[in-house]
Amino acid sequence: MASPRQPSGLTVAAIQIAIILAILALWQFGPIDEMLWSRPSLVFPRVAALWQGVEGLPPLSRQIGDTVLATFVGLAGGSALGFVLGVALAEFTTIRLTLAPFLAAANAVPRVAWVPTLTLLFGFGFITKIVMSGLIVFLVVFFNVLDAAVHAPPALLDGVRALGGSYWHRMRDVRIWSSIGAVIASLPNAIAFALVGVVFAESLNAESGLGALMFNAMQRGHPDDLIISALALGIIGLVLIAITRGLQRAFAHRLMLGDATPGGARP
């Protein structure tokens, strides 16, 4: 039986645009509560106003920048630390088995429960957001890397050993590369959780950022700002996911990620 034909990119894009237009039409002209959901005709002018900075609020560009920066810095720091500690702990079985229940307990704590503690430690502001983002990313990356390093393919380890590779060669050429694959595979989840963590931290204790804008909008009863914040976060999330997917595709054939399968297209 022939497999169903894949729709063209143009067809899919056209359907997506039609959906967006339909939603906008419903939102503008449909029977919804304007006090809760506002209207596109009110939201779009508000974007322009927020961009300049109104009512004592920082400009929208700065709000977006702060959220994105905190997410990225936390992502970079958390990934690096998670990678290094994951690879290191894989080598020390006794320490790993000893720490296992404590790590599991720490991982089970809802990330957002850390915000009050982090606020006490680092105060209100940018550092708390970065630490929150970094902590979330660290836990995601660390456990993935640890698992990949512990379960590095035995055949590859044997192959390196048979070629005369030492312990450090096996570490460099097998365990670390296996772990890099784990980092890249975990990035979409890590980014999504990091963004949530940053926004939550901002909503509680920051002067700037999309989370702070949302909290401020909720307090002042300003649905336009809430929707604008949500839309901005959605767009940021899409961009970040697209970047990580691009990274995954770039490394797929080297790290056997996603659809990369042995044998490629050659007969």
């Binding site: 055949a155 044997d158 192959g159 050993r161 050429d173 890099i180 790290l255």
Partner: peptide, 30 residues
């Protein structure tokens, strides 16, 4: 393993993150 030994395993042992040339040169680099 002694340096006199060459081993070809049943399972795949080429490192997927290195090129063919890098894989073939691996033992020499060690």
């Amino acid at each position: 393993p002694l340096s006199e030994i060459g081993y070809l395993f049943q399972k795949e042992t080429l490192l997927p993150w290195y090129t063919v040339e890098h894989n073939v040169s691996l033992g020499l680099s060690y």
